[in-house]
Amino acid sequence: MTLALLLLAGLFLPLYPLSVLPNSLLQSRLNAEVGQGPQWRRVPGFKTGLLLVFPMIGVGLATLAMRLGAPDPRVLTLFGVWGGMTSLLYAFRLLSAKDGEIWISHLFTSTLALIWIGIAYGVDPLLPAIGLSVSLLPLVFMLDQLTQRFGIARSGLYPGLCCRMPWFSHLFVLAVLTAIAVPFSPSFFAIAALAFGGVAADEVVVLLPICLSWLLWTWAGVNLLTGIVWGVPRDDLVYRDLDPQWGIGVGSGMVALGIFGILLVEVSL
C-alpha cells in the first residue's frame, strides 16, 4: 500500500516515466494544435491550477504513505535517487527547449522531482514544494502574454524585445530568474531548505542532483532570455508593450513572492 501510494505520488511530484502525465497536460497548446486536447487547456488559469495542485496532491500522497507505515529506508533512498535523476534528465532536456509550454513543463518536472530528495531524507516537503511551484507562476503569465501577442511563445522567433517592449522585458527577465531559483525567489529558498535539511543523510545523493540541476536551469534560462529579450528586433512585427499598471501589479506580486521565500526559509531551517 505504501509503495503504491508513493508510486501514485510520482504522477504528481513527477518521476520519469510517470512524468509524462503532467508534461502532456502542461503542453496543452501543442496537444490542442495536433487535435489531441481541448482548447480550454490553453487558458493560463488551468496551468496555474495544475502547477499549484499537483505538488500538493503529491506531497499529500507521500505524507499519507509515510503515515500508513514507515517504508524501508532503502526504498525511500531509491525514490530520492529516482527523483534526483528525473530532475537531472529534465534539466538537461530543458537546455534545448524553445517552446514556452515545453519549457514550463520540463522545468516543473525538474524542480518538483527534487522534492523526493526531501521526502527520502526527512525534510518536510510541503513548503519547498509550494516554493518551487509558485516560482513558476509569473513565467506562466508572461509566456501567455507572448502567446496573446505573437500567437506562440517561442524563443528565437522575435528576439530583441527589450528594445520594443521594455515593460514586458523587465518583468519577463524577473519571471525567468524567479523560475530558475536565483536569490530572493521562493525557489532559491526551497532549494536551500532541501539541501541544508537533506544533507545530513547523504551528502552526495542530496547535493549532486540539486547542484547540477540548478546549473542546467541557469543555462536554459539564459538561452530563453537570449532568444526573446536580447538581440536585434525584427521590423516586420507589431509590438505591443504591457500596460504599466499591469506591470506594476505583476512586479509587486514578485516582491511578495520574495518575502514569501524569506518566510519559507525561516520556517524550514
Partner: peptide
C-alpha cells in the same frame, strides 16, 4: 554550487 554545498555541510 560548491559554496552552497560547503554551507549545507557546515550547517549539517
Amino acid at each position: 554550487l560548491p559554496l552552497m554545498a560547503a554551507a549545507a555541510l557546515l550547517y549539517y
